[in-house]
Structures are given as C-alpha cells and as structure tokens.
C-alpha cells in the first residue's frame, strides 16, 4: 500500500510517497497559492512513482498550510510529524530541533512520541527567514553562508537577535572591516544561543536530531553543537522529515484501523488546478 505525506511549510512544500521506504520525494516553493502548490508537488511525486492519486491509501497533511491540502485525508501538526519522521530514521533520538522557514520548534521524545514541545512562532530570529534576510543583505546565496562561516577563526559577537537590527549590525561590522566568515559565524552563534535558550525548557537529554531547512546549514549545526555541548545529527534529507513523518503516520493510522477491523474515512481526492489569481 502507498501512503503519502504532504508538508506545506511557510517556505517550501514537500511531498513523499512511501511504501515501506520512500519511493518519491518532491520539494517546491510554497508561494501564495497553497492548494495549487500542494496539487503541483503531489502530481510530480505521483508521476515519479507512476501512480494515480486514488492509488494512495491514505494522505496526511502537515505544516502551517496543512488545512489547504485539498486531497488530504487527515491533518496532523508538524510537531507530531517531525517526531515520527525522526524516530523512523533515528530510533535513538530523544530530542528534535526543527528549524523551519518562519518558525522553529523543539520536541522532547519518549519512545518516539512527543513528550513535550516548545515553539518560536513570534520572531524570525532562530528561523530560516533570519538566515535568508542576512544572506540577501550580504549578497550571498543562503546555502553558501554555512560553509563560509566554518572558515572563521575569530567569531564576532552579534548582539542583536532581532532580524531587522541584526541586518543593520552585520552591515556595520562589514563596514568596520570585519571578515565575512567571522560575521557569519557570529550570526550562527546568535541563532544557536537563542534556540538553546528556548529549548532549555524541555530539559533535552540524549541524541538531538536537527530537521528542517536550517539543518542544511553546516555553520549553524556547528554552532548548535557548541551550544548544546554535544554532537547533533541530521537525517539525509532534513527538509523531508515532516513529510516522511506524515506518511508514516498515515501508515500507522491505517494499520491501527485495520487491527480493529475498520477502514479510515478518506477525504475528497482532488488534484485539479485551482488558483486565486485571475
């Protein structure tokens, strides 16, 4: 049986189709038209597998746009989905840090289930948006700032955690002649400090796994390891952790229903093009 997970995040939309393992995974920009985006990425994933939407046994949608996935059978929060996705790839994980486009979340796990969680959904600091703004200000690609920061021998402290003021501070430091890699290392240090402070409420112990687009930034991972004073792990495709978790939960729910001799109620499977713009 095929199961699908759709993670409609603030910045990117991810779809995975799974059987026992991942058969297809598609990522694209979310944009303003959530339904259209969801349909587009799902169509591409189905094409990759050579399946039709009705071949999917159950679809779980997650992410901040989860209610806008027209073909989803159920919506589950990204907190639960990331936890499930991480537990699948790292069974020993006891903590998850998800650094998404517009928020960051921390989860403490107990046997793969969420035991506690925190969210930063008020401020861009500690999120992918912060890194995007700073890289734009510096004329860099966001994927380049991690490797550049690793060259730093002298981290420059960035005192502002507010995205707007941090941008000004970075520009001022450059004007003073500071090295780019030292500034970037300072930025990663500032974000890691903020995440560490927020997540300290969870009293996280054991293996920490970082997911989301932020996990692709090697400079940020290094800073997190320093702040948490332990190694942090990332899945091979950290941006897909939520979508994989959603697909796994789709499978779990189907299995649980079958064990009770029941079948799950499915939503309307619509993949037609929809648009708000005329």
């Amino acid at each position: 049986m095929l199961f699908a997970g759709v993670d409609l995040g603030s910045t990117t939309a991810k779809v995975v189709i799974m059987e026992k393992d991942v058969l297809a995974s598609i990522l694209g920009p979310t944009g303003a038209e959530h339904r259209r985006t969801a349909n587009k990425v799902m169509t591409e994933a189905l094409d990759q597998v050579g399946a039709a939407i009705d071949d999917i046994e159950y679809v779980v949608a997650t992410g901040y746009g989860r209610i806008n996935v027209p073909f989803a059978d159920k919506q589950i929060t990204e907190i639960s989905c990331h936890a499930r996705g991480v537990h699948w790839s790292f069974p020993s994980a006891t903590a998850v840090i998800d650094i998404g486009g517009q928020d960051s979340k921390g989860m403490r796990l107990n046997k793969g289930k969420v035991a506690d969680f925190v969210m930063n959904d008020k401020c861009a600091a500690g999120t992918g948006r912060f890194l995007e703004v700073i890289s734009e200000a510096l004329g860099l690609k966001v994927e380049d700032i991690g490797p550049i920061s690793l060259k730093s021998q002298n981290i420059i402290k960035i005192s502002n955690v507010c995205t707007v003021f941090a941008e000004q501070e970075v520009v001022a430091k450059l004007a003073e002649g500071a090295k780019l890699e030292d500034i970037l290392a300072g930025l990663h240090d500032a974000i890691a400090s903020r995440i560490n402070a927020m997540f300290s409420r969870l009293k996280m112990q054991g293996d920490i796994v970082v997911t989301g687009g932020g996990a692709l930034n090697t400079g940020l991972l290094k800073a997190l390891e320093e702040k948490f004073a332990q190694p942090v792990f990332t899945p091979s495709s950290p941006q897909f952790a939520g979508a994989i978790g959603a697909a796994l939960l789709a499978s779990d729910l189907t299995g649980q229903a079958a064990a009770k001799g029941k079948t799950l109620k499915k939503g309307h499977r619509r993949l037609e093009e929809v648009t708000f713009f005329t």
């Binding site: 929060t77 969420v114 969210m119 008020k122």
Partner: peptide, 28 residues
Amino acid sequence: IPASFFDVELSMTNFDAIKTRIDAFSEM
C-alpha cells in the same frame, strides 16, 4: 499532568500559530 502555554494579545486576529500549539498539545 501534561502542561503547556500559549500567549495572546487581545487585538490579535490571526490564530494559526495558536491552533498549531493547541492541536500539537492535544496530539501529545
């Protein structure tokens, strides 16, 4: 006893983030 919190302002009109927190708490 599981416990969590969310913060609100009286003038707020968008409750998406609060919905996620409540939903996640319920799932937990």
